[in-house]
Design a protein around this nucleic acid. Sequence first.
DNA 1: CGTATTCGCTTAAACGATTAAGCAACGATG
DNA 2: CATCGTTGCTTAATCGTTTAAGCGAATACG
Lengths: 357, 357
Amino acid sequence: MRSEKPKLAVIAETLGVSVATVSNALSGKGRVSPDLAERIRETARALAYVPSMAGRALRTGRSGVLGLVLPDISNPLFPQIAQAIEQAASTAGYGVLIGDSRGHTGVQTETIERLIDRGVDGMVVIPRRGTRISDIGCPVAVIDTPSTPGNTVSSDHWDGGRQMGAHLRALGHRKVLILAGSPLSTVQNDRVGGLKAGLGPGADVEVVWLETLASPNAPDLAPDRAPEHSLNLAARVEQGVTAFAALSDLTAVRALTELQGAGIAVPEAASVAGFDDLIWSSVVTPSLTTLRMDMAEIARLAVSALTAVIEGLPRARVAASGTVTAERSSVPMMLVVRQSTGPCRTIVPKAVEGIVR
Amino acid sequence: MRSEKPKLAVIAETLGVSVATVSNALSGKGRVSPDLAERIRETARALAYVPSMAGRALRTGRSGVLGLVLPDISNPLFPQIAQAIEQAASTAGYGVLIGDSRGHTGVQTETIERLIDRGVDGMVVIPRRGTRISDIGCPVAVIDTPSTPGNTVSSDHWDGGRQMGAHLRALGHRKVLILAGSPLSTVQNDRVGGLKAGLGPGADVEVVWLETLASPNAPDLAPDRAPEHSLNLAARVEQGVTAFAALSDLTAVRALTELQGAGIAVPEAASVAGFDDLIWSSVVTPSLTTLRMDMAEIARLAVSALTAVIEGLPRARVAASGTVTAERSSVPMMLVVRQSTGPCRTIVPKAVEGIVR
DNA sequence: CGTATTCGCTTAAACGATTAAGCAACGATG
DNA sequence: CATCGTTGCTTAATCGTTTAAGCGAATACG
């Protein structure tokens, strides 16, 4: 086997030119005759030359790697996000380094610093709810919650809520229970607001926050704590609730199975809807009506904003990093109507039926 | 603000010593007087010195980054894996770079090469089912399927199946339907084998493979295709099946909701069990009995095997990289009994009831 | 007392890429 | 013919770290 692993010097030596010329030819920057440039590219290909990221990083100060900071990987929304970001970053020529805060707000800062120390060129941050990302010394794109500068890209959660509300209203639902998670979440509050707006002024809407304020620092999902007590949804149905709008598919599936377990048919007796179109939503029976985020678009926006900033400021030191002029975008959500929502059955509780007519 | 960002030279200059001494002091390698060493560490701390990964990587040839190659991030098992690996790698001082094959076998090789080109020191690979990892030029730890050398760490899926089978047998189930995914998956075949063994020789076991051989290159989960046709589990119950053992919680939840939708009570009329303890399993009603992998342990083993190899071979070139002597380990799975499995109701189909007695 | 052997530090050479600056040669222009 | 500007390449410096080699001075040993 040819032991010499290809670096610029090898190509240079092969063709009898200098490394600088090779570098110029491959990057297309300096002045190289078209003829020679072609020959250089050719031998580079022949030798299967791959530039050393380390060497390049040292010289240019850029690593070609983005950090992905998550509040908690175990959040089931993560796969969608990770895949979209990885895809977008990868096509933009960047690698993605994982940073997980494991549900602790304090760890978030630490995680971010570890990534910076590793030399990421920028980072996509999905902040833990209620936290804001302080100005760190590198370009940041924040997903899903407004942050200090304008570098935020997010789904239009409010409008998503509105779409869902309108959908339920169109089906005739007037008494709706919203199953929410934590009142600290901006996202969830947006969705609640939109839902109420979409349901219209006459609707009878109640919100139940499943996560108590008592544990604001608990992990996003506390699976071992949550199922302790049932949500008592059957009682709600008897009280006249005809639709349950969960702010997450996780909760929606929980509601669905609880209702089914109590012998309440979905969607005949009560409708159930969720958010995020997690993978389960299409698999359960009945499949869940839900709102899907356009993760690909969000990721594309976040990454392109990031790369623009990164490749924009030439070799500036940490100095003017506040100049992170990313577009503040709002990406529409998409209503996916499946089987778990249906027309509202005229409210005729069995007990009263005889009396009414 | 002090503009000078701390590098070795700054510390050296501050104390009037040479950079080499500073490097030695901080790494603890060369010969430095304890006194000076302490002063160096102190000023390093004071200046908030962080070594440049780029510089170090260039010199040492090691980047301090591991690659994580996944067949498909959208697999709901991914969060568990990613979190465990990130945790293990992070405590071992390594970063984790994501590489996603998006369900395509062909992309897997490409993904691996991209990571190598990025200079990872080693990689954890969860191969697409049916594929083996050819000898690439860097240390590899393979999870969940036997690979070329001995560098594999995996759950004991067979024994997991056996545990589940034994559990069901203890509850009195003799007629069991196994809901499997793809027959190409070694993991799933192991689980099936274990299940059969655990259920004992007298049991009436049938296996249904949900994924046809027709689409061997399709993504792991085809959520839009899967729910097309129901699994027809109600009919199975009428045929006398009392327990459904799904090889994935995803399928288990699917089975659970389908049964509930058909008015079949779980676990009274039929038991349902799954694998992997995905986050949903504890949230649905009834909560799922399932088998949990010890992801933390698997990740720890994989990462430590990797780091051992990496830090073992000093600065050897690609030459003897075949010497990847990682331990081939099998990590036990843990049965989590919840509400979805219960004692087998003596089989007295309603239609026959009157006749029997 | 002369010669080894440590100790404690410095000098210097890598690692592989980028890039500013320089230098011949050549054609065009005054 | 002298000068200027291009073109096409090379020289050399630089990024920040590690590490082999070197070199006085102090200590040990015969």
